[in-house]
């Protein structure tokens, strides 16, 4: 990547960083980018399985100026990691805006609301609401789960805090958190009709941006988007399409095995035949981005490169996403 481009972006992001640090009431940077009509680019930072703050800071620096915000995962795959809120705070100290992921697996409504009051007080403004991977997948399968509320109830609770200035119990909050509320959607999970109803409910509950499951089957995604447009949902929430970058044949084969993933065989074959699987993985991601961004109603791309975060800057530059807008 050209140094000038990166520097230019860092400079433009400086104002955003000050705002992030001071926790003013203004909209999040991501929200502003989207509302200004720009095509957003987000990526992910997985906090470390340790108390290493520098690890998080370095990851943030690698993405600074390249993305509009970075999701900070919440003990993903139910493996114990640094808290998403703490890591998000570290990320914002570096000037990069964070999207705090919040799952319903580990906290009851008391802890969730308390943690989110704290998050907002620390200047974190975006929250992505999720059910959370079941603890049986993680490294503490012996643990008790919570699921006091589900992800739709969480979205609704955050909307209630913001719009009605009340807690889940209906009691008023003097200084409510006013998050830019996000949710996930999986256009490929079944049963299709029920998953769509659930997606509609998330938007009705108050989700203003939607990050989708990783897309490989563009045709199927385009059909899903057609339905989204027909219902006018793309005007109620910003649809950010998920892209996963695979490093190897093994990686894409494992992706295919994940529940709710639709990976056409052609991509597996291409990876198997490729002289350089890494380059092929990048090419596939770039082709998908190129096709997906043309679909009406898609307002951004969310890049997930689990275990290969170093490729994200390459993808962003080669996809022509730079410079990022200053808003």
């Amino acid at each position: 990547m050209s140094q000038e481009l990166r520097k230019d972006n860092i400079d433009k992001n400086e104002t955003g960083s000050v705002e992030a640090k001071t926790g003013t009431k203004a909209a999040s940077h991501l929200q502003k980018v989207l509302e200004a009509g720009h095509f957003s680019v987000t990526a992910e930072i997985g906090p470390p399985m340790s108390a290493n703050a520098d690890f998080v800071r370095n990851k943030a620096r690698e993405l600074l100026g390249l993305v509009d915000a970075a999701n900070i995962t919440d003990n993903q795959t139910a493996v114990v990691r640094m808290s998403s809120i703490a890591a998000a705070y570290l990320v914002q100290q570096e000037g990069l805006e964070a999207v705090v992921q919040m799952t319903c697996r580990d906290r009851n409504r008391i802890a969730i609301q308390s943690d989110l009051l704290g998050a907002y007080a620390l200047g974190l403004k975006n929250v992505l609401c999720l059910s959370g991977d079941h603890q049986s997948f993680g490294n503490h399968p012996e643990s008790k789960n919570v699921y006091d509320i589900d992800s739709i109830q969480l979205i609704n609770a955050l909307r209630g805090m913001k719009e009605e200035k009340v807690f889940i119990n209906g009691k008023s909050i003097k200084t409510p958190p006013e998050f830019f509320i996000g949710a996930t959607a999986n256009p490929f999970a079944d049963p299709e009709e029920l998953q769509f109803i659930r997606f509609v409910k998330k938007i009705r509950a108050g989700a203003r941006f939607i990050q989708t499951q990783a897309i490989y089957d563009v045709e199927r995604f385009a059909r899903w988007m057609e339905k989204v447009r027909k219902e006018g949902l793309h005007e109620k929430a910003f649809i950010l399409a998920g892209i996963l970058v695979n490093k190897s044949l093994k990686s894409i084969e494992m992706t295919k095995m994940v529940a709710g993933m639709a990976v056409p065989d052609i991509f597996i074959e291409r990876m198997a035949r490729a002289a350089s699987q890494e380059e092929e993985g990048v090419k596939i991601a770039l082709e998908l981005i190129d096709e997906i961004r043309k679909i009406e109603g898609v307002k951004g791309i969310h890049i997930m490169a689990v275990g290969w975060e170093s490729i994200v800057p390459v993808i962003i530059e080669r996809a022509g996403f730079l410079p990022r807008p200053a808003v």
């Binding site: 059910s131 699921y147 589900d150 992800s151 996930t184 999970a189 049963p191 659930r198 529940a259 709710g260």
Partner: peptide, 27 residues
């Protein structure tokens, strides 16, 4: 996950992601 508003993303072919021997309740 005792979800009240529909299945999580782990519902696949009518089964729960935590164990293919368990039906997805929401399916």
């Amino acid at each position: 996950k005792s979800n009240f508003n529909g299945p999580c993303g782990g519902s696949s072919n009518g089964k729960c992601e935590i164990n293919p021997g368990i039906d997805c309740g929401w399916q």
